[in-house]
């Protein structure tokens, strides 16, 4: 009996120790960080809109210039609890004004906070991890030009065990992957350079899959049903299928998609609605070629049916 207890204790300790090691926060190598050149705020602004930062981090329902005031406070409901977007303005106490560039890079591409804690993947670093580090540095350069605001939004409202941030480290082992979901265009006639730019924007900063791809029981994206539509985490309705299928946007041309992202109108002149309004208003600020690239990538996805 005593032996059994000892065996259990050893197993338990080993299991816990293994989990502790596996859940350790990840960071970017110092060599990679040292290779970065000073950020370009002009490119950074483009990434700011492509990344939709303001959709969660500006105050709820902010419009126009108010989207540059990153006070936080938007509430994201999920099966795991409610996440409250933090202040990421340049306030040194309430926001990220005291952060260094390496701290910002680790947050964006590794989901690791300056104190080593894991961020919850409601912050879509599993997508941002595909961004080039130089683009992240450029984004940081732009964000340092934005105003400081002292608002402190509330804490996340999560139940056990999701309130233990260390567990997110294990989740990251499964779902924080460096490779793109789609390795090549399905359709042979896609312009390779545009397609690649589109994949970068959609799978990286744009983080489109976070809503448009269904999730498994652990909250990881089901890459086999990439962009095939999913229940709306915010409540009513469904997030649409945006693959080139009958159920999706198979009837849309590349220019239809690009026009939708620019104007907010579908080919049959229905308008964009729901959470996509804020996304479309970000996309309209991108250069036309980026919208075309997104369209080329979407048209070359494997159809959902």
């Amino acid at each position: 009996m005593k032996k059994l207890i000892v065996a259990f204790a050893i197993l338990g300790a080993a299991g816990f120790g293994g989990a502790w090691v596996l859940s350790a926060p990840q960071v970017v190598s110092t060599e990679a960080l040292a290779a970065l050149t000073p950020g370009d705020a002009v490119n950074g602004e483009r990434l700011f809109w492509a990344g939709g930062c303001a959709s969660c981090h500006a105050a709820p329902e902010a419009k126009g210039e108010d989207k540059l005031v990153l006070a936080g406070g938007v509430r994201l409901e999920s099966p795991f609890g409610t996440f409250v977007a933090p202040n990421i303005s340049m306030s040194e106490s309430a926001g990220i004004g005291a952060w260094s560039l390496p701290e910002f890079v680790n947050a964006m591409v590794k989901g690791t906070a300056p104190d080593g804690a894991n961020y919850y993947p409601a912050f879509p670093y599993t997508s941002y991890t595909h961004m080039t580090l130089q683009d992240v540095a450029d984004l940081f350069a732009f964000m340092t030009t934005l105003p400081a605001v002292e608002t402190v939004p509330g804490n996340h409202e999560l139940g056990f065990p999701f309130n233990i941030r260390r567990t997110v480290g294990l989740w990251k082992r499964l779902y924080l992957r460096p490779d793109f979901a789609i390795s090549q265009p399905e359709a042979g006639d896609a312009d390779p350079a545009l397609w690649e730019r589109g994949r970068y924007l959609v799978e990286g900063p744009g983080h489109c899959a976070e809503c448009h791809t269904p999730r498994g029981p652990l909250g990881g994206l089901e890459t086999g049903r990439w962009m095939a539509g999913a229940p709306n985490p915010a409540g009513e309705g469904r997030i649409p299928d945006i693959t080139p299928s009958d159920a999706g946007i198979g009837g849309w041309s590349v220019s239809d998609i690009a026009y939708y992202l620019e104007s907010g109108f579908t080919p049959d002149y229905d308008s964009v609605g729901g959470e996509m309004v804020a996304v479309q208003e970000n996309m309209t600020r991108l250069p036309a070629q980026d919208r075309e690239a997104i369209a080329v990538y979407l048209k070359a996805l494997p159809p959902s049916n």
């Binding site: 309705g237 469904r238 649409p240 308008s271 609605g273 729901g274 309004v277 804020a278």
Partner: peptide
């Protein structure tokens, strides 16, 4: 006129 479409659809219309 067209601008008002999405302003209303943002909060008051559900996609199915």
């Amino acid at each position: 006129v067209l601008q008002t479409c999405k302003s209303c659809h943002e909060g008051f219309r559900v996609k199915r």
